[in-house]
Design a protein around this nucleic acid. Sequence first.
DNA 1: CGGCAAACCTGCGAGC
DNA 2: TGCTCGCAGGTTTGCC
Length: 279
Amino acid sequence: MPELPEVETVRRGLAAALEGRVLAWVRAFRPDLRRPLPPNFSERLTGRRVKRLWRRAKYLLVEMDDGLVLIVHLGMSGRMTVGRPTAGVLDAHDHVAFVTDDGTQVTFRDPRRFGLMTFCDRDSWPGHPLLRDLGPEPLDEAFTGAALAARLAGRRSPLKTALMDQRVVAGIGNIYACESLYRAGLSPRRRADTVSGARADRLAAAIKAVLSEAVAAGGSTLRDHQQPSGELGYFQHRFAVYGREGQPCPACVPGSSCGGIRRIVQAGRSTFFCAKRQR
DNA sequence: CGGCAAACCTGCGAGC
DNA sequence: TGCTCGCAGGTTTGCC
């Protein structure tokens, strides 16, 4: 479930449950996710107080009051839930559990195990190998059309593929790349380095609009619950193109000359777009 | 270096 | 009903 809006939704839900609380009990039920958990994983967290939850791109950063930072990536299927302790009753894919000093349990579930947890330090996290090459945060003021154009310059790959490259801009995945390009009226197949000037302004504005609307909706829920509280995000009801192959796009009348939303594959991922509206 | 397919892993829905 | 296939919100690796 995790692109920027979903991770931001998780961050907000976990912040409410964890900030200011002591991790009284931590346990990992397997030694690895996408990669091995760090040595002494549970011991290093147990007894520490959570200071603040941050997000960078699709990474969650759980900062402890002594400067230790837990980096979490949800992969494709990672979920965090907040609830009462489950007294040992766990789903087969519940891999890590945290219980706070007020008796709240945060559970990390990840069937596909593409997720990741590791540690870094508060004062050096921007230089961590997982984080240092990430592009700008798209919701920051500094992310402008000109800034985006500078990052796309010299890239001959399809625009959609470039948008999903976390070094170009951070936090955009398959859904929001498709939706942003539709909103901007730009073809996913256009060469990335042809986007500058007014086109880049349009695209940066579209990215900001789509992402902020999705955050306000609690993200998108495709096949499962996802907010830590168990509530569902509802931005999936506002998709213009994603997952809508064959249907008319919102701006095209059914049965018009527009052939409807098309699905193609780019760099191994499905792309959905309206060939009439996106050039 | 740039770009792409494959790999990592499990679950689910469609089609036979 | 039960099997196989294709597909899924991401990132890394390895090959051209």
